[in-house]
Amino acid sequence: MAGRGRASGSGAVALVLLLVCLVGCGGKPAATTDRKDLQRVLDRRASAVMERDRTAFLKTGALSWFENLRGVPLASWSYRVTALHRSGDTATADVDLRYQVQGYDKAPVTAGRTLTLSREQDGQWYVDAEAPAEKSAQQLWDQGEVAVVRGAHSLVLGVGQTSEALHRYADLADRAVPAVTGAWGPDWAGHVVVLVPKSLDGMAGLLGSPASSYRGIAAVTTGEVGGAPNAPADRVIVNPDAYAVLGALGKQVVLTHETTHVATRAHTGAATPLWLSEGYADWVGYRGTGRTPEQAAPELARAVADEAVPEALPTDRDFGFSGDATKLAQAYEGGWLACRMIAGEWGEPKLGEFYRAVGDHKARAGSVEGALKKVLGTTLEEFTDAWRAYLRDQLG
């Protein structure tokens, strides 16, 4: 028994040594250590960004976009390592960048980033490059030095734009905000963030989509569906190529339209058809401008003249940017005239109430029908017939 006992103890020691070897020489703990080491480097990198400390930033990696960001007002900046792929003394890492713009974002924006890394002689990871992750959009500072202009109700961030040009955008946004509040009411942030890249390609980069998808589109608004109270601020992203060809009124209408999307975000969701969200934004944009239906809806005016009045309200598919340009224009015009009809026949407060009632519905099915009955006292069939008659009356 004693002999067996000694053999058992010796085997236990061997087993322990084997386990130590497996743990010490194996992957998981070493990989965990690598990730923790990298996280510590990225924590120092984030602190350097917040403190605008160039020297501290360089200790974590190449200067890269650091100088491009220096004018942007930040409330927070952090990284979280989600994956590390090591090959000897080099690696790539997937990380989530989270940041907030001071005074505008109530919660961090999250952006996927890919880091290219090398191991220094002291064993520290060094960031050789940082770029948007695959299928992730660029950030404005990825495109160049960001210039910042503060308006009374706006923050304008631009790349490759003159200070004078950015101030003009701020003036337009500052006029848009009170115009939107006058129509929608005060239950929104009451300010807007406008991003102005150098070109259409820059806009596409910020949206993570091909430039062909937005050619001819002057601006778009990005934000979280439903607009939770703690969501990051929406961004109005301008296509400077298309925006430049607009007249003074057109530029103001576009900024007011996009600002309306910012204001209505909390009551816009999956239940809201595009004819209503886009039509309402156009209604606010044109409100008070004196533009007649013939001037603002030329494509539908031609359709009415050709006795080709649409049979139904525009579908979401009609609003596709890459489709038929005439059909797209008619969709926007049809949505605008539907909202204009509601404001004229039922009153502007009812239009706002109708919009909220549709958006607050839990699903698309029945959302419009329910709001039409509850708020306007009509049916979808009756409303559609009235809208078609309104087109003939206003555009005939």
Rank of each mutant, 00 (worst) to 15 (best):
residue 359 G to Q: 06
residue 388 R to L: 03
residue 32 T to P: 00
residue 130 E to D: 15
residue 115 L to Q: 03
residue 119 R to W: 05
residue 289 T to W: 11
residue 133 A to H: 04
residue 204 A to H: 09
residue 231 A to Q: 13
residue 285 G to M: 11
residue 180 V to L: 08
residue 381 E to F: 02
residue 18 L to F: 15
residue 4 R to T: 13
residue 142 D to M: 06
residue 357 A to R: 15
residue 116 T to P: 01
residue 333 E to L: 12
residue 254 V to A: 07
residue 166 L to N: 02
residue 258 E to N: 12
residue 312 A to I: 00
residue 48 A to K: 02
residue 295 Q to G: 04
residue 197 P to T: 07
residue 65 W to M: 07
residue 230 N to H: 10
residue 343 A to Q: 10
residue 395 L to W: 12
residue 302 R to P: 00
residue 171 D to Q: 15
residue 146 V to T: 12
residue 371 A to P: 03
residue 29 P to D: 01
residue 86 R to E: 04
residue 182 G to I: 03
residue 396 G to Q: 10
residue 92 T to N: 11
residue 330 Q to S: 06
residue 316 D to H: 09
residue 393 D to F: 07
residue 22 L to V: 14
residue 194 V to L: 12
residue 131 A to T: 14
residue 299 E to H: 14
residue 136 S to Y: 04
residue 348 E to W: 06
residue 335 G to M: 12
residue 105 D to S: 08
residue 373 K to P: 01
residue 215 R to E: 15
residue 353 E to I: 00
residue 63 L to Q: 12
residue 353 E to T: 13
residue 123 G to F: 00
residue 315 T to V: 12
residue 144 G to V: 06
residue 176 A to P: 10
residue 391 L to S: 04
residue 340 R to T: 13
residue 347 G to C: 11
residue 222 T to V: 15
residue 373 K to S: 15
residue 305 A to P: 04
residue 349 P to Q: 09
residue 113 R to E: 10
residue 2 A to Q: 10
residue 185 G to L: 05
residue 372 L to H: 05
residue 290 G to C: 11
residue 14 A to R: 13
residue 298 P to G: 11
residue 186 P to L: 00
residue 87 S to F: 01
residue 327 K to C: 00
residue 344 G to A: 15
residue 211 A to V: 03
residue 71 G to C: 02
residue 107 A to K: 12
residue 229 P to W: 02
residue 245 V to W: 00
residue 253 V to W: 02
residue 291 R to D: 04
residue 242 A to P: 10
residue 122 D to A: 13
residue 247 G to N: 14
residue 374 K to P: 00
residue 247 G to R: 07
residue 317 R to E: 13
residue 67 E to V: 07
residue 146 V to C: 11
residue 277 S to R: 13
